[in-house]
Design a protein around this nucleic acid. Structure first.
Lengths: 211, 211
DNA sequence: TTAGGAGTGGACTGTCAAGTCCATTCTCGG
DNA sequence: CCGAGAATGGACTTGACAGTCCACTCCTAA
């Protein structure tokens, strides 16, 4: 029963998810039919329902998970090593660069959107992603506190939350307007706030950030 | 020409838009059919197409405009009078309060979302709203600069952009998670950055933007 | 080699929603 | 009060799309 998936079968399943993800990004979830997915991935309806017995809903969930994974992966390794101002800058640049390249399509946004009320599963995926993301940022702030580059009085979680909100808003605005400047400014300011923090009393940050 | 609309007709049109807006907020655009709108507003298909000859698309556009107007209206009068720190706080509280009351439904988000790629008209509405919103905030910052409460070296537009991004992101996260804390933190930090600005004299650790 | 199950193709069906049409009723200026 | 045009009702057409079904092929393990 169940997980009897041949290597070939797994490849097909993968192909379907990847293809569907691309279509969702390009034309939106609502604007993509299962037939579209079949055509784009060179599969047939029966295959689709073979791998996703619950149909559309299940496919969307799978794509959501797939896309959510990608979001953090695309920020690595920088996101995991926010241990110096240079690293923060590198991360900032990576985030901006990634969204610039991606243009009008944020995998996350595409999914959060179309999943209005209802669909608790999908929401969970998004919530999990946001939580992890914020956690990574907070960890980065704590790194800086440990090394004395940021005052220990700073609330890492709150700053991480604000920074994450700025990123999300920046992306959202980019999707609507095509301008990436909001994202840049939000990141710069979110990091800048940390930078401006009087580091301890000991070393007034001679940080190697290109200021 | 054009306005061959009886008083009664106008009322009906209004009723349709308001009812559709409510449904969109509650169940999403994609999850709402024209029949749903008809039923909810006690109208018939022919009426719907009488007032919106271009059908669904045009209705959505009308609702988008309707909702966009609401967004700024709901922040008034505070948004128009950001002339003291107390005023900024009042505005902040109003924004937070409004979204808290509204729960899981942001008119703007609902529309930005479901209108993936395509639909240039809808996008324009959103872009216009964002532009106005940011403008209002920037004006507020300039007020504070004029009164010497914020350093004149601060770039009002950039700070307004960052603050707006924070708000948008905070709202987006609230929609996904149900938590309003991100919105609060984003607002607090965005305003806090201004507050921290030493009035007058050039500032040592300028927040944000390195160049 | 040979079953049995995984993988695949593609036609078919039922449903639902967008948009059309025409007959009927109401509004309002003259 | 009267007629032109607005407002309304609701059945009808059309098309698209999710999901089903069955015949068929291919892999693989015993």
């Amino acid at each position: 029963m169940g997980s009897t998936l041949t290597r070939k079968g797994l490849a097909t399943r993968q192909r379907i998810v990847a293809g569907a993800a691309e279509l969702f990004r390009a034309r939106g979830v609502a604007g993509t039919s299962l037939d579209d997915v079949c055509e784009a991935t060179s599969t047939s309806k029966s295959q689709l329902f073979h791998y996703f017995p619950d149909g559309r809903t299940q496919l969307i969930a799978a794509v959501a998970q797939h896309e959510a994974d990608r979001v953090l992966d695309d920020q690595r390794p920088e996101l995991d090593q926010l241990t110096s101002w240079a690293a923060w800058r590198a991360w900032r640049d990576r985030v901006v660069g990634r969204y610039r390249d991606q243009g009008q399509s944020c995998p996350l946004a595409v999914l959060t959107s179309q999943l209005g009320p209802g669909s608790p599963e999908h929401r969970e995926v998004v919530v999990g992603l946001l939580r992890q993301w914020q956690q990574k940022i907070a960890d980065g702030i704590r790194n800086m506190q440990a090394s004395g580059d940021v005052a220990s009085s700073v609330d890492a979680d709150q700053h991480a939350a604000a920074l994450l909100a700025g990123i999300q808003g920046g992306v959202m605005i980019m999707l609507a307007t095509g301008e990436i400047s909001h994202l840049e400014v939000a990141l710069d300011q979110g990091i800048g706030v940390l930078l401006a923090t009087p580091a301890q009393s000991g070393t007034p940050a001679q940080s190697g950030v290109r200021a």
